[in-house]
Design a protein around this nucleic acid. Structure first.
Lengths: 212, 212
DNA sequence: TGGCGACTGGGTCATTTGACCCACTTCCTG
DNA sequence: CAGGAAGTGGGTCAAATGACCCAGTCGCCA
């Protein structure tokens, strides 16, 4: 392990930390375990990071970027908004099923960040990031299909993120693929109801309760 | 601290543990911290519990019961299903806002349980509990209003739980009450759509796409 | 190409932590 | 009311952990 630039070690350590957290949870992410996972001596850790918390803060920042990279390149498929949303959620679901521990680690890191005053802001930014990601996806989907959103797109985005978190936890707990499918169907159908064609916008606003 | 029956100490320690987890997260729940919170010597801890994990397992079981006690006595209010669901979710939301750290602790405990092979089953049971809780609430609400569920009530219950988890995380991160309100409205409206009056069941199934 | 600063890695150190021991006290039962 | 079981609490121990040191090595730039 001869003379690797500090910047590279930073990255290597952060990625090793993510693997360790995924494998054994935040509690298992000791400085030694992380350094060992990265295959470098403990001293390199403290040469590059001030402390364990310093590394954890960088880790949270890192995973946000990862999430973005994995979700964003989302080609719009399907001619129906419900289909488009469903496809997007399935893309995430596949990611979740391919590497459950990684997504679990993500959630745990959010909780971890919320605990310390410094990092709480980091968690907030993490979710603002998710919201804006969802918002831009929803906007482009609607635009693509010539639709407009009934409610502010930020509001819809937030709901979509909440649905995603909920289905993630649910699936992590019991790994029930059928239930996952149900939730995705529900989410796609329910969220799609918030979009209309501009011409007849707000016409049949609430047709279920219409009694005339 | 003179001669208290072991059973009482068990309860006291479990409750102290919950306070410690709520305050500082699972990582802060050391045997010493818990014993100190309960105001008893460390030895009492090991007299009553085999190990820290033993206590944690009991803690998870305990919080499930707590959740049930807090949510179940839910009088049905409102003449509209959407209203009833909304009221139920607001009851939970008020609980969340009254003691955010407690709900955060709950989520963290779920993640913690999922990490160990023994406790993973405990987490599963915890969620099955939530599901059946939601299912019975949904069933009695529908019965009360003379409605029937379009989809299996277990499926709807699961979706409701996922929505609850999602909105919990979302609110814990940014404490945005307006957003919480939005999500509850969405959830109530969307979930209520799954119920119909038995007579005209399935009639206006998908009126949004109806073009005639 | 020589030197200096960046980087390495084997160790150390004080704390914290889970586990547990054992002599002592208290309460209940027979 | 005597005796033993149940309960108490001060103390100990080994292991793990975060932090860090420093002598030595490496590579880049003047």
């Amino acid at each position: 392990m001869a003379h690797i630039p500090a910047a590279e070690r930073r990255d290597a350590l952060v990625q090793a930390a993510l693997r360790v957290v995924a494998e054994g949870g935040v509690g298992a992410a000791t400085t030694r375990a992380i350094a060992a996972e990265a295959g470098m001596p403990l001293a390199s850790f403290h040469y590059v990071f001030d402390s364990r918390d310093d590394l954890m803060a960088h880790l949270v920042t890192f995973v946000v970027g990862q999430e973005e990279a994995a979700i964003l390149p989302e080609p719009i498929v399907g001619s129906d908004l419900q289909e488009v949303i469903s496809a997007g959620l399935w893309r995430y679901a596949d990611l979740l099923r391919a590497d459950p521990l990684r997504e679990q680690a993500m959630l745990e890191l959010t909780h971890y960040a919320l605990r310390s005053a410094d990092m709480a802001d980091l968690a907030r930014r993490q979710y603002e990031h998710y919201f804006s990601l969802a918002a831009s996806a929803l906007t482009s989907a609607a635009t693509h299909l010539g639709l407009v959103w009934d409610r502010p797109v930020d509001e819809v985005a937030r709901i979509l993120v909440a649905l995603t978190d909920g289905m993630t936890i649910s699936w992590l707990v019991d790994r029930d693929d059928a239930a996952l499918s149900d939730i995705i169907s529900f989410a796609a159908e329910s969220v799609a109801r918030f979009a209309r064609t501009p011409e007849r916008a707000h016409r049949d606003e609430d047709d279920v309760t219409r009694t005339t």
